[in-house]
Design a protein around this nucleic acid. Sequence first.
DNA 1: GCCAACGTTGGC
DNA 2: GCCAACGTTGGC
Length: 167
Amino acid sequence: MTTDAPASRQFWLMKNEPDEGSIDHALAAPQATIAWDGVRNYQARNFMRDAMRPGDGVLYWHSSCAEPGIYGIARIASGPRTDTSQFDPHSPYHDPRASSAAPRWLTIDVQALCKVRPLLIADLRAHPQLAQMQVLQKGSRLSITPVTPQQWDFIHDLLQAPAHRAF
DNA sequence: GCCAACGTTGGC
DNA sequence: GCCAACGTTGGC
């Protein structure tokens, strides 16, 4: 018997640099929850504003590192709210064009659930079922991308399979 | 560190 | 509203 997820549940891939926000860092935070701040791309912001809902599943990606890939599983843990780092002149995420009267950027809470066996880019590319993943497309830079339920399920199957299974 | 791809800015 | 110039991302 399968359990029915809420029909509205969606899935996402979120990139973070391990130096700044690794899955270990998130797991060690209070409630294993971190504010996903510093997003300065309108498409990614609009996903947070319009589409992401508490409970949505997240593939936790490490980027800009020696071995980019999926390192953990997380969930969306809040609705969107103002990312106050945009107002802070000392923050690397400061946006001089933003004001509290006209904020531009949002943050959302992400709760880390577990670390997983790393699924690196080459591992993911080995599966035609994942060929359409946005993060694998040439030139893909977006830090938040939707993941289809099929991709999500397939990746979870991969994570449950023996690590050194011969294909 | 390189550089292709992409997003943003701003002059016109 | 076009588009060249510029800045950034991020895999390699």
